[in-house]
């Protein structure tokens, strides 16, 4: 009898939910394809930047396909990627060693204009740069990006106080993990502020103990960008990550000035300082990197010529000269083509 009542209530609830649905929007499909050539001036795999790491080769990034559908207050996003950038270089393999090819897979429900909840596997909310080459200005990525999380699976709620401020709080798996082997173990939050038009700032927090980790790891991250003038944009990312009980971490900052000569031509610089914290009393190791990139756009296609100089003061990156001798500096040129649709 009880079961019958529960089933009746469930049926009525589903019926009223269905009745309350608004018209669905058309299915959105978008994506990108990217490829690149990179040349290291010492002919060695020196700068271990994510995604553009193959010397003197016309190499693949990924093909990326994203689907989005909104029906009333509910929506989903499913984003699949195939290729080195979208598989082994950005997604941890599942238990059987295979990649699921998934960059984003989540459902979202807007309870009101102000409050939404999202659950699934999502691009991380931490940091300035992202996996998709369409959403980055530079093609190579920063150390802050490479050392930080790529994706966070979890459930989160976002409350918009106004168009100028919102707060997200959520529970998450270990970094980049489809399945959390030690239970949902991380708590995260993001405060978004947009004080004036063209300026947005995100203060991010993510803390938890990953499976096999010697301690609780905590990231505090600031990501901000300001469109100073119609042509000049300035971005900044600063982060600190510490694993408890002197188990290392990192800290750093990167600045991103970009100037658009026209809607089709822009030049941008990334200047980064990065510090790898020594664990168990070991010394820290610091790096600096300067990257100059152009963006030349023709319709959906963007060419990204780029030159990058890295300085590895403490020899933590094992830079080599062409004769195999250790060196503190490295430089590379790359040309990438990214097509977005």
């Amino acid at each position: 009898m009880k079961l019958k009542s529960i089933l009746t209530i469930a049926a009525i609830s589903i019926a009223s939910l269905t009745y309350g649905q608004e018209a669905s929007e058309a299915l959105q499909i978008s994506g990108s394809v990217d490829t690149y050539f990179k040349y290291d001036f010492e002919k060695a795999p020196n700068i271990k930047t994510y995604f553009a790491n193959e010397h003197n080769s016309v190499s693949l990034g990924m093909i990326d396909l994203a689907l989005k559908k909104t029906t009333g207050k509910a929506s989903f996003v499913g984003e699949l990627s195939f290729g080195p950038r979208g598989q082994a270089q950005s997604i941890a393999p599942s238990a059987d060693g295979e990649s699921f090819h998934i960059q984003n897979l989540y459902v979202n429900y807007a309870f009101s204009d102000k409050f939404t909840m999202t659950a699934g596997y999502m691009g991380t909310f931490v940091g300035y740069e992202v996996i998709s080459p369409v959403a980055n200005f530079n093609y190579s990525t920063s150390y802050l990006f490479g050392y930080g999380p790529f994706q966070n699976a979890g459930i989160k709620g976002t409350y918009a106080f106004s168009g100028k401020a919102s707060l997200m709080v959520g529970l998450f798996n270990d970094w980049n993990a489809y399945q959390d082997l030690n239970g949902v173990s991380h708590i995260g939050a993001q405060l978004m502020l947009a004080p004036v038009e063209g300026w947005s700032a995100y203060i991010n927090f993510l803390s938890g103990s990953s499976a096999g980790s010697p301690g609780t790891g905590t990231i505090i991250d600031l990501t901000t960008a300001y469109q100073v003038t119609e042509k000049f944009k300035l971005g900044l990312n600063a982060a600190d990550y510490s694993i408890a009980n002197d188990n290392g971490g990192y800290s750093g900052a990167a600045i991103y000035p970009q100037y658009a000569f026209s809607p089709a031509v822009a030049l941008g610089l990334r200047g980064e300082y990065f510090n790898i914290k020594g664990a168990g009393g070991a010394a820290d190791a610091s790096l600096t990197a300067i990257t100059v990139s152009g963006n030349l756009k023709a319709g959906g296609l963007t060419f990204i010529p780029e030159i990058r100089f890295d300085s590895d003061e403490d020899l933590s990156q094992s830079f080599m000269k062409s004769n195999g001798a250790a060196t503190k500096s490295a430089a590379q040129f790359s040309l990438a083509a990214v097509y977005a649709f």
């Binding site: 989005k68 984003e79 960059q103 984003n104 989540y106 691009g123 998709s132 369409v134 947005s200 469109q227």
Partner: peptide, 13 residues
Amino acid sequence: ERDRYANFVPSTT
């Protein structure tokens, strides 16, 4: 422009 969650949002330009 595309954001990190594969949504399309207004750019700053």
